[in-house]
Simulated assay, not measured.
Amino acid sequence: MSILSEFKQFAVKGNVIDLAVAVVIGVAFGAIVTSLVDDIIMPPFGLILGGVDFTDLKIQLSDPVIEGGKIIKEGASINYGNFIQVIINFLIIAAAIFALVKSINSLKRKEEAAPATPTLSKEEILLTEIRDLLRARS
């Protein structure tokens, strides 16, 4: 079996396609959460803390290089405000994924708990019919 045909078989199985769809939806969901945190959650916190924009919170390690009144190279800095926003993004996404997985697992447990209707083989069906016919004759 060639590598190309193995890859084709692997890709068509369905798991890869499901994974690709999940990644696309995850990226879109990440963008929504980022906007939620950056545009809706953090501005009120910044206002409460005295009009602070969290993306501007940083510890400046070195001065920027300035020539002719223009910044040519930014100075090195530790951007802890941006890091705080990324942590909040992560926590919201993690909570949403946890809730989704928990609900899916709950549905699976309900499915597994439901009694399965036994399927009879052809022989069992035939024997049941014979039994019923013999009961009817007696």
Rank of each mutant, 00 (worst) to 15 (best):
4 L>P: 03
7 F>T: 06
8 K>C: 06
8 K>N: 13
8 K>G: 13
9 Q>C: 05
10 F>L: 12
13 K>D: 04
13 K>E: 04
13 K>Q: 09
13 K>L: 05
15 N>W: 11
16 V>L: 15
17 I>A: 12
17 I>L: 11
18 D>Y: 14
18 D>V: 07
19 L>Q: 02
25 I>C: 14
26 G>A: 11
27 V>M: 15
28 A>T: 09
29 F>S: 07
29 F>K: 09
33 V>A: 03
34 T>R: 15
35 S>T: 10
36 L>S: 06
37 V>F: 00
38 D>N: 04
38 D>E: 01
39 D>S: 08
39 D>W: 03
41 I>Q: 03
41 I>V: 12
41 I>P: 01
43 P>T: 08
44 P>D: 12
45 F>M: 15
46 G>A: 06
46 G>H: 07
47 L>M: 14
47 L>H: 13
48 I>S: 05
48 I>D: 05
48 I>Y: 11
49 L>T: 00
51 G>N: 08
52 V>E: 04
53 D>Y: 02
53 D>V: 03
53 D>N: 06
54 F>I: 01
54 F>V: 00
56 D>M: 11
57 L>V: 05
57 L>A: 08
58 K>E: 02
59 I>T: 10
59 I>A: 12
60 Q>Y: 01
61 L>N: 02
62 S>N: 11
63 D>E: 15
64 P>N: 10
64 P>V: 10
64 P>W: 10
65 V>N: 05
66 I>H: 06
67 E>R: 11
68 G>Q: 00
69 G>P: 02
69 G>T: 03
69 G>M: 04
69 G>C: 04
71 I>R: 02
71 I>H: 01
72 I>V: 14
73 K>D: 06
73 K>I: 09
74 E>T: 09
74 E>M: 11
76 A>C: 04
77 S>A: 15
78 I>N: 08
79 N>A: 11
79 N>D: 08
79 N>H: 10
79 N>M: 04
80 Y>E: 03
82 N>L: 14
83 F>Y: 08
83 F>P: 00
84 I>S: 01
86 V>L: 15
87 I>S: 08
88 I>G: 01
88 I>N: 01
92 I>G: 08
92 I>V: 15
93 I>S: 06
93 I>T: 06
93 I>F: 02
94 A>F: 14
95 A>E: 06
95 A>K: 10
96 A>K: 13
96 A>M: 14
96 A>G: 13
96 A>S: 15
97 I>K: 15
98 F>P: 02
99 A>M: 12
99 A>K: 10
100 L>A: 15
101 V>Y: 07
102 K>D: 11
102 K>G: 07
104 I>M: 12
105 N>I: 03
105 N>F: 07
106 S>Q: 07
106 S>M: 05
107 L>T: 09
109 R>Y: 08
109 R>V: 05
111 E>H: 14
112 E>L: 11
113 A>Y: 08
113 A>L: 12
114 A>T: 14
115 P>W: 13
116 A>N: 02
116 A>V: 12
117 T>L: 14
118 P>R: 15
118 P>L: 13
118 P>W: 05
119 T>A: 11
120 L>E: 06
120 L>I: 02
120 L>F: 12
122 K>F: 14
125 I>T: 09
126 L>E: 07
127 L>T: 02
127 L>M: 07
128 T>W: 03
129 E>K: 06
130 I>V: 15
131 R>M: 08
134 L>Q: 08
135 R>Y: 12
137 R>T: 05
138 S>T: 07
